[in-house]
Design a binder for these strands. Structure first.
Lengths: 183, 183
DNA sequence: GATTTTAGTTAGATAATCTAATTATATACA
DNA sequence: TGTATATAATTAGATTATCTAACTAAAATC
């Protein structure tokens, strides 16, 4: 009767450990000058980020698009009528190579959500634009996207939200500086 | 002299918009019942999560491994000597298919960081274990991993840390429930 | 006008995932 | 005891998202 682990002969599921074993491991293996509290927070942030991305992906799936494609569509939407959008500028902003953008655009163009137009001023450049169909897709996806964003964060008390907002904005700023990226 | 946008003829970089245009777009396109404040937080969390993952990946690169492989190695480390680890149980815990685990394990085995041993009790099952070399790799990577985790979160005041810890743990719990996953 | 730079694409590779089919073993049932 | 079913792992073949290196065309430099 002293058996705690019923699973032993019935299934090989790994038990959920929770965070404690991670913290124990950290205690044993982190450098002396690593701040444990901060590392703990960073680990949580990593997990949470993973989960947040999964949750959003799940919602975008409904529209047959992935996060990468959504990023492109969002950039096109936000910069539409403001500046000329080229594959290079997308690559730059997305932090990926031009060749990778070519692949994304091929995919989006095949589905008639974007078009490429050669620049008349500079024959090397391509203007990337949303089509009407593309605009409609974005219009359908946006409400779902926002609601998915908000559902990640539900369950927070009013006070927690205010604090979190301040902290997240600060973190985001410092992280962008470190990585040299930005939105 | 009234030109504000010097870029116009010199480069096609997309300007960094910051968060405001996103919030404006949200105002126009979110459903009525979507809580704007929460969606704003969710968006920040998404960005931050992306950046956090990039930062960690950058550090793991030094060791020639990616996040997926690191996840496997960490699970093997934490469950070593506690329970039998099979490809199935890894798939289950990682939230991916058994076939995907086979591919990850093939890669790790080729580099002699893990071995596969057939179970004597149940011929269908495989025990996955770290090799000595694998354990050494993990031992080298762990200090870097923790310090990367902590560096994501540096710049926070003492008070902010305490608040954030509480909030992140709560969010993580509720998110895991929603997605039905866990560590 | 020749050289260099820039923009975009192509070709070919790797990584991480998937589904469906296959193989071997174990379990259930009749 | 056999046959049918279920489970574990792998294989085969595909897709997506990346990359680097090489290439083409156009523009800029000198």
């Amino acid at each position: 009767m002293s058996r705690k682990n019923k699973r032993e002969h019935t299934s090989d599921q790994l038990p959920k450990l929770g965070i404690q074993p991670y913290l124990d491991l950290m205690e044993k293996t982190a450098l002396q000058n690593t701040d444990r509290k901060l590392a703990h927070l960073g680990l949580l942030m990593l997990w949470l980020g993973d989960n947040a991305i999964d949750a959003i992906d799940l919602n975008l799936e409904t529209f047959g698009i992935t996060e990468s494609k959504w990023d492109v569509l969002l950039l096109l939407t936000l910069h539409e009528d403001r500046e000329l959008i080229t594959p290079s500028s997308l690559a730059d902003r997305l932090g990926i190579r031009r060749a990778s953008v070519t692949a994304l655009l091929d995919w989006l163009e095949k589905r008639h959500w974007i078009i490429r137009e050669q620049s008349t001023l500079d024959g090397r450049k391509i203007h990337v634009k949303l089509t009407q169909e593309g605009r409609e897709l974005v219009a359908r996806a946006l409400p779902v996207f926002w609601s998915a964003c908000s559902s990640i964060m539900s369950d927070l008390e009013e006070e927690e939200r205010m604090l979190l907002e301040k902290i997240l904005m600060k973190l985001n700023r410092s992280m962008e500086e470190k990585l040299g990226v930005g939105r």
